[in-house]
């Protein structure tokens, strides 16, 4: 068989056929496809596949970014620490874990629209400013802050531009008084 005939020219299909074909792929395969080029990421986004939720978990025991779907069981998950991986989980290694988390979550959110839930332990993170400077991470559905004492600097980095839609849980004490202004903003706006 000629080399040319072994390949399938996906991007040359008419748009209706191409979108139908791509919608028949598993979401994890669409994610892989999106890593092939900017154009393919755009094509995957154009399918308008809704995610049930995006999760970011950066705690002492777990560092992961994941996206969950209603229609397909399981999730696509990127983890930052070694250990046994299950199906549809990837291991990735970023020197700057906060920048890596932001990059991965941005890509997931670009592909699959859906609400974001964040669980973080600020005392183990060093680059919160960098992470929460990304617009995609400045709006979430729920946020939980856990771990040991959180400095007011860390809290300022997190809450400077943050908008939380449903629930905020702050477990650790702070070393100084820190006013989470966005909560006041939220309270005012909802009366």
């Amino acid at each position: 068989m000629a080399e040319e005939n072994r390949k399938f020219k996906l991007i040359q299909l008419p748009i209706v056929a191409r979108q139908k074909l791509m919608k028949m792929m598993d979401n994890v395969d669409l994610f892989e496809l999106s890593l092939c080029s900017i154009r393919m990421a755009r094509y995957v986004r154009a399918l308008r596949i809704e995610a049930e939720r995006h999760n970011i978990t950066l705690t002492k025991g777990q560092s992961s970014v994941s996206v969950h779907f209603r229609k397909q069981p399981g999730a696509i998950c990127e983890r930052y620490r070694n250990g046994p991986l299950s199906l549809n989980e990837y291991y990735c290694d970023y020197a700057n874990i906060e920048a890596g988390t932001a990059a991965v979550s941005k890509h997931f959110q670009y592909l699959f629209n859906g609400p974001l839930n964040i669980v973080i332990c600020p005392s183990i993170l060093r680059n919160l400013d960098e992470m929460f400077s990304e617009p995609e991470l400045q709006k979430c559905q729920t946020m939980e802050i856990c771990g040991s004492e959180a400095t007011s600097k860390a809290l300022r980095s997190i809450f400077r531009n943050m908008r939380i839609e449903k629930k905020l849980v702050v477990r650790p004490r702070t070393n100084q008084d820190y006013v989470i202004e966005q909560v006041w903003w939220k309270s005012k706006s909802t009366g």
Binding site: K7, F8, K9, L10, I11, M25, D26, D29, E32, L33, L35, C36, S37, I38, R39, M40
Partner: peptide
């Protein structure tokens, strides 16, 4: 596409790079 890496997908679907 099932179970393929981006490099394999590029070959299978003849996807151009950026």
């Amino acid at each position: 596409a099932q179970g393929k890496t981006p490099a394999q997908l590029r070959r299978v679907y003849l996807l151009p790079s950026d």
